[in-house]
């Protein structure tokens, strides 16, 4: 198991966080498309943390199991929370500058997506899986 973490404060940290996630996916043998899907999803979620919560923390975890390899990226912040979460995740539209578009895009790009949000604590987990053949 490998873990790395990076604080999210500035726009440059968003780039660093997505590169960290990509590198982990690359090391675990994920293909270019999956690396790019994950990096893009991380970029969306990390930006939200900075924009709406004033910053946060990004943790990247890579794990090799008996028959699959997994990358989990966790983005946490202690901001106001996402009060219209249900609505955002149902949203079919990608247009506009709304918070929802980034979160909804991230959800569609990764294999598994979990979000827990309440005032003072938001925790988003993005997961990519790859079967070992």
């Amino acid at each position: 198991m490998a873990v790395s973490a990076i604080p999210l404060k500035t726009p440059a940290d968003v780039v660093a966080a997505r590169e960290l996630a990509r590198r982990m996916a690359c090391e675990l043998g994920f293909g270019l498309a999956d690396q790019t899907r994950l990096a893009t999803a991380v970029s969306e979620v990390a930006r939200n943390a900075i924009q709406y919560a004033g910053g946060g923390m990004c943790t990247v975890l890579g794990q090799t199991g008996p028959d699959e390899r997994v990358v989990v990226v966790r983005v946490e912040d202690d901001g106001p929370g996402i009060h219209n979460l249900e609505e955002i995740l149902k949203m079919p539209s990608l247009s506009g500058r709304k918070l929802g578009s980034g979160l909804e895009i991230a959800r569609r790009l990764v294999h598994d997506f979990q979000v827990h949000s309440e005032p003072g604590r938001t925790n988003i987990a993005l997961m990519m899986r790859r079967r070992i053949v």
Binding site: L32, T36, T40, L94, R108
Partner: peptide, 16 residues
Amino acid sequence: MRPEVAIVLTEMGREL
């Protein structure tokens, strides 16, 4: 544009 970027952009929504 790299092929993998084209793939992901399409999945995100082409009109983007």
